[in-house]
Amino acid sequence: MNEFFQIFREVNMLKGLGETIYMVGISTIISYAVGLPLGVIVAITDQNGLTPRSLLHRLLGWIINMTRSIPYIILLVALIPFTIFLVGTSVGPRAVAVSLSIGAIPFVGRVVESSIKEIDRGVVEAAICMGASTWDIIWKVFLVETIPSLIRGISLTMIMLIGYSAMAGAVGGGGLGDIAIRYGFYRFETDVMLVTLVVLILLVQVIQLVFEGIAKKINKK
């Protein structure tokens, strides 16, 4: 245990952990800010949705599928010019947050869309019969009824982003991935690699427990 903390201090893993949390936190917020409305639009423009718009639905679906099919490490490299344009650099946690956000937006969009599609059609029909507008249904039915699954979606997104951020370590992205690559891969320091792994596993477990707990607490079904 003492050895664990010694390595933790020696390689400044707290800084790496902080950078990972920063990257993942910022990207989760941005991906939800964009992915939530995107998922709602995809859901309501579906053939059986509130306001069917076949062309828009197919176009958005195609963009989501296309973005999701690009491996993250390729997306990260492909977005370098855009990242430099946006934040002035292509390295470090701030730069990685750009590609992480863009990589996670379509995932969040799909999480939101599938959560909305799980709502009983009868509940939406009842709302329509009470005079609810499309806007009312989005705010007062969709977003209220899907809160537990959206919260579970946050943990899924964060865990996926932790994996992505570790990949970004390979190209100077900072965070725990950077430590694992530098010490574990380039210097063959297996003990540092193992400590990094343990920290990553603990981080994932904490996120899973916290968000699952919140979702369970607020789920009234």
């Binding site: 009868g122 509940v123 029909e125 009470m130 005079g131 609810a132 009234k220």
Partner: peptide, 27 residues
């Protein structure tokens, strides 16, 4: 027009108060 359905179609994440209040809120 008020409609009552076989499957109740209540909002499961809202309590009785908010379910009954829903049509008044949207109006």
């Amino acid at each position: 027009i008020g409609v009552v359905f076989q499957g109740y179609n209540l909002l499961m994440q809202r309590n009785v108060y908010h379910n009954i209040a829903f049509p008044m809120v949207v109006n």
